[in-house]
Write a protein that binds this DNA or RNA. Structure first.
Lengths: 188, 188
DNA sequence: ATTGACATGTAATACGTTACATGATTCC
DNA sequence: GGAATCATGTAACGTATTACATGTCAAT
């Protein structure tokens, strides 16, 4: 149910259309909570029924009318209720790690190819992360510095996880290449 | 669709019932691909229809009969086809990080409470990881050492991600406590 | 001339969770 | 006496994805 709450958070900044929500989600939280367009529109409709939002329809022929959503008191209350509620550990689903798990039934070269593919992905992700703040500086100059701090904190989280993953992948690849089928002592 | 492929992988070790699959999933891959019982039974039924599996029903009154699933040639082919197919980056969904993202609208103490909650979770997870290999040594003494190596590799992955997360959380908490609303230079 | 931004949505499908349902046996 | 293990499944619900559907305007 967290897309709902992310949307509440954004509408707490300012009223927006579904189109606007999609843009800000992509720019900010998509690296830890992606959402496709159809999902956002459906969720907004549901949230309106729950009376967390009201709609202001602005016609602008010949385009489809902008439906600008506003947070209601009840919506704002729900947002802060949720922000106070500690969340359980997030579940992850790592298909590529299932492949590695069954690496014993593959040739070394094949497992290494899979690991190197993930290594590329993570390295590209790191490049992507460092380019977000530049974009942001232009779009968000007039934003609350406290809001911006927490935004940057979430990016830093992504960076640190990606770095840890790159290191693990490099060690895994080298261990397999050396034919050392035991792991170095587990540590940071 | 990766639960299917995990199941193919386990049945490639040896034929098993749904009950057995649930046990081995919980013991081995659940930290990066959790699955509830009902999902496993449903998936096995679907896989049988796709002719990836055949069932051998062993009655054992008065208990429900054991339905032992065997991999077919087509199922084994699908397993190895999939193992050769590099996977895209795994999507993650981190509800707690959405909360942190909107930390600008909370009091420092509240954000810190949320971060400390995640810190506890990660520390407990680390303890859990180090206890898996002990269990395993008893259950899996007669297993292929190569299979075991890749199993341990996936545990090591979980450990390294958890350690990185603990470090990030500690830094985040301290940064906020100090009232320093800028981040230390991003690095490992 | 084509791409991208603007702006809305529906339909079909897949995947997953929670709760419900049954019932014997063994261990503490 | 109560919990855990063994062993199967169904039903209702929630969430998310992919593909489809429509159409203008501005910029390169």
């Amino acid at each position: 149910m967290s897309l709902e709450h992310a949307i509440l958070g954004f509408l707490n900044y300012e009223p927006m259309s579904g189109y606007d929500v999609k843009k800000i989600v992509d720019l900010s939280v998509s690296h830890f909570w992606p959402a496709v367009q159809s999902q956002i529109y459906k969720t907004l409709a549901r949230m309106e029924k729950e009376d967390w939002l009201t709609v202001e329809t602005i016609s602008q022929d010949p385009r489809p009318p902008r439906k600008v959503y506003h947070l209601t008191d009840s919506g704002r209350q729900e947002l802060f209720r949720w922000l106070n509620e500690p969340q359980p550990a997030s579940e992850v689903r790592l298909a590529w790690l299932i492949q590695i798990f069954f690496g014993g039934r593959m040739k070394d070269a094949q497992v290494i190819a899979l690991l190197e593919h993930q290594l590329n992905i993570q390295r590209k992700k790191l490049v992507g992360f460092t380019s977000i703040p530049d974009q942001t500086k232009q779009d968000m100059q007039d934003d609350d510095p406290r809001d911006k701090f927490f935004w940057m904190l979430t990016i830093d989280y992504g960076v640190s996880q990606a770095i840890a993953q790159v290191k693990w992948l490099e060690i895994a690849i080298n261990t397999i290449k050396l034919g050392e089928y035991h792991l170095p002592t587990i540590q940071a």
